[in-house]
């Protein structure tokens, strides 16, 4: 594979199966240096499987991957040295203290003891755990554990940080805080690959999002481009005859896409919906179809997900 210096992670035709279960099917994508890249998908989509292959916990069955300039198939040790990891499940020893946890991590990566100590201090300040240095893990709250794990993932100054569902199970306030830490970590130059099934998380953090479902990438792009691909606004309309209305609506300039069902019509508008809406009502009324209800909103990631997968995100 030709190496591109501006790319921190390049994945080509990656597949992974557990026996008969095809968890990841032929996915390709790349992450630019300095970016935050998210895998957005429902439970069982294959996010953890993909991440576990990339961080060397699972063997690379099929595909070619370059992580931080190293070939995942042949240079696994170098890959391990270049990345930081925050696992989906809490992976801490309840009976170790906060500082022991970080020092142990530094030790198994062969970090110099003094360096280890200064970084421990720095990172605990970053994640606001400096007053917990000698607390035992079992004395920490869920959010504190998560923050400690993020600090641990950063101990070795990785070029690329992997996070598998970083804010799962955290309260809204702690989630927000965690996003802030991740953004500041990213601002200091660490590229980030994360998985999530929260739309708002992907939207808030990512430079690039890939929507993954049933082991496949369905679509990808920047959060804005994904939302814009749905048009300016989404308009929901209920009429006396939805089927007839659909045909008429399609002739109105500015209407991008119309989906009708018995109960309602979902219309994607290519222009400003607030100006389009009066025209819609006028036209339909002119065709003797009565408009019973309307609703207009800006598309969000939920809409993007529903649009591309054809269903609501299973939570």
């Amino acid at each position: 594979m030709p190496q591109d210096k501006s790319v921190i992670l390049k994945v080509e035709h990656l597949s992974h199966s557990y026996g008969e279960v095809h968890a990841v099917r032929d996915i390709s994508f790349s992450v630019k240096k300095g970016d935050i890249f998210s895998f957005l998908g429902p439970n069982g989509a294959g996010k953890s499987t993909a991440i576990n292959v990339l961080i060397t916990l699972l063997p690379l069955q099929k595909g070619e991957v370059v992580v931080a300039g190293y070939n995942l198939r042949t240079e696994r040790e170098q890959v391990r040295r270049s990345i930081g990891i925050v696992f989906q499940e809490i992976t801490l020893d309840r009976d170790m203290t906060v500082s022991e946890t970080l020092e142990f991590h530094g030790d198994i990566y062969g970090l110099d003891r003094n360096l280890c100590r200064t970084r421990t201090q720095e990172l605990l300040e970053l994640v606001k755990l400096e007053d917990k240095v000698s607390a035992y893990i079992k004395e920490l709250s869920g959010g504190m554990k998560r923050r400690l794990e993020i600090a641990r993932g950063l101990m070795t100054r990785p070029k690329l940080l992997f996070l598998d569902e970083p804010t799962i199970g955290l309260d809204p306030q702690t989630r927000r805080k965690t996003w802030e830490y991740l953004k500041s970590v990213n601002a200091e130059g660490t590229s980030i690959f994360l998985t999530t099934h929260y739309m708002d998380e992907a939207d808030e953090l990512s430079d690039q999002i890939a929507i993954i479902d049933n082991g496949k990438i369905i679509t990808s792009g920047t959060p804005d481009s994904l939302k814009n691909s749905l048009g300016e606004d989404i308009i929901y309309i209920e009429t006396s005859d939805n089927l007839a209305a659909e045909k008429i609506l399609l002739t109105i300039p500015g209407v991008k896409k119309v989906q009708s069902s018995e109960s309602r019509i979902v219309l994607l508008s290519g222009t400003d919906g607030t100006h389009l809406l009066p025209r819609i009502i006028e036209t339909l009324t002119g065709h003797e179809i009565s408009v019973q209800a309307v609703n207009l909103k800006k598309p969000n990631m939920d809409d993007v997900f529903i649009h591309y997968t054809g269903r609501e995100l299973r939570e």
Partner: peptide, 12 residues
């Protein structure tokens, strides 16, 4: 339930 995952993903 513990840190074997951390160890196994490290260069140790």
């Amino acid at each position: 339930w513990g840190i074997l995952r951390e160890i196994m993903a490290s260069p140790l």
